[in-house]
Design a protein around this nucleic acid. Structure first.
Length: 376
RNA sequence: GGGGAGAUACCAAAGUGGCCAACUGGGGCAGACUGUAAAUCUGUUGUCGUACGACUUCGGAGGUUCGAAUCCUCCUCUCCCCA
């Protein structure tokens, strides 16, 4: 994998770049739609490519390992072929499930023991076998196994958790070096910074991660309930330490405002379930603010969903009609909202990229941030 | 014509002397959602008040009782069965 920074913003740490993978180039900053089980919920790949202009999507190790299982994905020739997505794929390691399925797992030095949420069966994830699994998935970017530390965590827990993540990282890197891609294309491996909301821990973690000189670095354990100011503070600490010339990936973030603020701090890659999940639940993100399309106020509004939207649904369907679909519980409503939101998220990062190239990112960002939180 | 059942909030439906402004579900209204156990979850839904609370409600009119959605009388309406 190759990363080249193209432009740097004058008023902030924002930068634009190009990330080259075996499945295509990614223009950063970029938002990566989440397709946990090999599907960006409710969206055809065709629309992901042609409408949303997605350049890379996510898959999840834990979920794909449980279902359909590695045998099937291996037989299919990897996740790209299995799901018919020939663009880049990043797979999360299951580290987030260590956090989100906390009640169903036990953390040990060797790894994390999971009780499947599907059938209760037991499974053991280690820093090593998570690499092996991602080799089978064939993702372009593989993630290290980490513990996504919950918020709030007391200092001692956060420190121990971070240190475990660091030890796991050593093992993951070893395994990564010992193994080869299975399908003839390149794969890379991103380590993850932890450290909860403690400045000194974040600093230690970022330094530790930086030493490994990976092709890209991720920042995890944020947007798990902490105040946004804390997140930005941690980001600033971490982005000042991680190597400038390597892409930075902020995991699981976030709201449109979060993304712009993080871009300003020098983050290049983002993923979040928000555009799809919140879309399914009737929330639309637009350049003018947030719409809860289920609200009564849209009942008689026959204007397009989003005049400025980039996808075909934005001008094809009216707010009134979309509201009707949600009220009626029609799945088309969830699909339209998801497509719109993803289109908006991709528009947002592409616009940010444009502004960085034009050297007026900060000013634009400040103006956008004002509008993005509006409730329409 | 004869016999029976019933009428409760937007709808359906529980409650059959005080713990009832009234279970529950639907519908309505609003909120939440950040590396997806989510096409999910939460709140609210008589009026007024931020709240403690106050006031008006269970087909209608009377009555019994300290107290009635609940018991009695009459009335109105609906449904079912038989002819």
């Amino acid at each position: 994998m190759e990363f080249k920074i193209e432009n740097k913003d004058r008023g902030s740490a924002a930068r634009s770049g190009i990330l080259k993978t075996s499945h295509g180039e990614i223009q950063t900053p970029i938002f990566m739609p989440v397709g946990t089980v090999g599907s960006v919920k409710g969206i055809y790949h065709r629309d992901l490519t042609n409408e949303v202009k997605a350049e890379i999507i996510l898959g999840n190790t834990y979920h794909l390992y449980l279902r359909p299982g590695l045998e099937i994905i291996k037989s299919a020739g990897g996740l790209h072929k299995f799901s018919s997505w020939d663009g880049p794929i990043l797979t999360d390691s299951g580290g987030y499930q260590v956090f989100s399925l906390a009640e169903n797992r036990k953390l040990k030095e060797e790894g994390a023991e999971f009780k499947s949420h599907i059938d209760g069966s037991k499974h053991f994830f280690t820093p090593e076998n998570v690499v092996d699994i991602q080799r089978i998935l064939g993702s372009d970017i593989m993630m290290a196994l980490d513990e996504c530390t919950p918020y709030p965590s007391d200092y001692n827990y956060a420190k121990k958790s971070m240190e475990l993540t660091h030890r796991w990282l050593e093992r993951g890197i070893e395994q990564f070096k010992k193994t080869q891609p299975l399908y003839g294309h390149r794969q890379t491996f991103f380590p993850i910074v932890q450290g909860s909301t403690y400045t000194d821990l974040r600093k230690i973690s970022a330094e530790t991660i930086a030493k490994h000189d990976a092709e890209g670095n991720a920042i995890g354990g944020l947007s798990v309930g902490e105040p946004e100011e804390d997140m930005y503070e941690m980001l600033e600490v971490v982005t000042n330490i991680l190597p400038l010339e390597k892409p930075r990936y902020l995991m699981g973030v976030g709201t449109p405002v979060n993304i712009l603020e993080a871009i300003a701090l020098g983050v290049d890659m983002f993923d979040c379930v928000m555009p799809t999940r919140n879309g399914r639940n009737g929330m639309l993100f637009t350049s003018e603010g947030i719409i809860n399309i289920k609200n009564q106020k849209w009942k008689n509004d026959f204007s397009p969903i989003d005049e400025n939207g980039i996808t075909f649904v934005d001008k094809t369907y009216s707010k009134s009609y979309l509201r009707h679909l949600f009220v009626a519980g029609e799945m088309l409503g969830a699909q339209i909202a998801s497509l719109h939101n993803l289109g908006f998220y991709l528009w947002l990062v592409k616009e940010a990229r444009k502004k960085i190239e034009e050297n007026n990112f900060s000013e634009w960002k400040n103006r956008m941030v004002q509008k993005l939180s509006n409730r329409l």
